[in-house]
């Protein structure tokens, strides 16, 4: 029988859908940022990636079961340390800029911009949600965070189609971070073996 955590792809699919109805649901995605980091910090390694990542399961479902993946090997440069750490730095820089623009709305320098930005360039007007019930900065973060989640899903879907289903896992910034944290935490154990 399947375990509950094997159905987490439903959570991921639902999350992406809910953002189309109300952008404020984007905040729920923080779970996917905080949980893997906390688990690796307390010494559980990549438990989140290994057992609880709904996005990974979604790519598996689409790529394997629905046969949308070409199952080709990922190009060597995409799995190189340079690319993985480089993508992490780029991703975190863009994330930092998103936090900064949230801050500018928080301190009143900028007005709320109701757009979702895909692939860091394409701006989609997203003004059908009434966000007046919350502070503008809360809504601004939701737009920014949903942009991050949607962009990474698109990249993951593209590599799922062209390469193996879970190719996203190779360069996922969260995965690179949790592996890095685990390496720092278990440095001695690795040195003992190698």
């Amino acid at each position: 029988m399947k375990k509950w955590n094997e159905y987490l792809w439903i959570f991921s699919a639902l999350y992406l859908t809910l953002g189309f109805f109300n952008i404020l649901f984007a905040w729920i995605g923080m779970i996917c940022f905080i949980t893997p980091l906390l688990l690796s910090i307390i010494g559980k390694g990549k438990l989140y990636c290994n057992s609880y990542c709904g996005r990974g399961q979604l790519f598996e479902l689409l790529g394997d079961r629905l046969k949308l993946s070409s199952n080709r090997n990922i190009p060597a440069f995409l799995r190189s340390k340079w690319f993985r750490y480089g993508f992490l730095v780029f991703f975190m820089t863009m994330f930092g800029l998103m936090i900064f623009s949230t801050y500018l709305v928080f301190n009143g320098s900028n007005n709320l911009k109701e757009v979702v930005t895909l692939l860091w360039t394409i701006q989609l007007p997203w003004n059908w949600t009434n966000t007046s019930s919350v502070s503008p900065w809360i809504a601004q973060f939701a737009f920014g965070f949903y942009s991050v989640m949607l962009t990474s899903t698109i990249l993951g879907l593209l590599t799922m189609i062209f390469f193996k289903p879970r190719s996203w896992c190779v360069y996922c910034p969260m995965g690179t971070m949790t592996q890095g944290i685990s390496m720092l935490k278990y440095k001695k154990e690795i040195n003992k073996i190698r």
């Binding site: 690796s40 010494g43 559980k44 390694g45 990549k46 438990l47 990636c49 290994n50 057992s51 990974g56 598996e60 799995r79 993985r84 879970r166 896992c169 190779v170 995965g175 690179t176 949790t178 592996q179 944290i181 685990s182 935490k185 278990y186 154990e189």
Partner: peptide
């Protein structure tokens, strides 16, 4: 990258992920 896909597909449970 320690993603755990191999561990999941192994029919013999022969694979473990060493501390992530």
């Amino acid at each position: 990258v320690a993603c755990g896909v191999c561990k999941k597909v192994c029919p013999r449970q022969a694979i473990t992920i060493f501390h992530g």
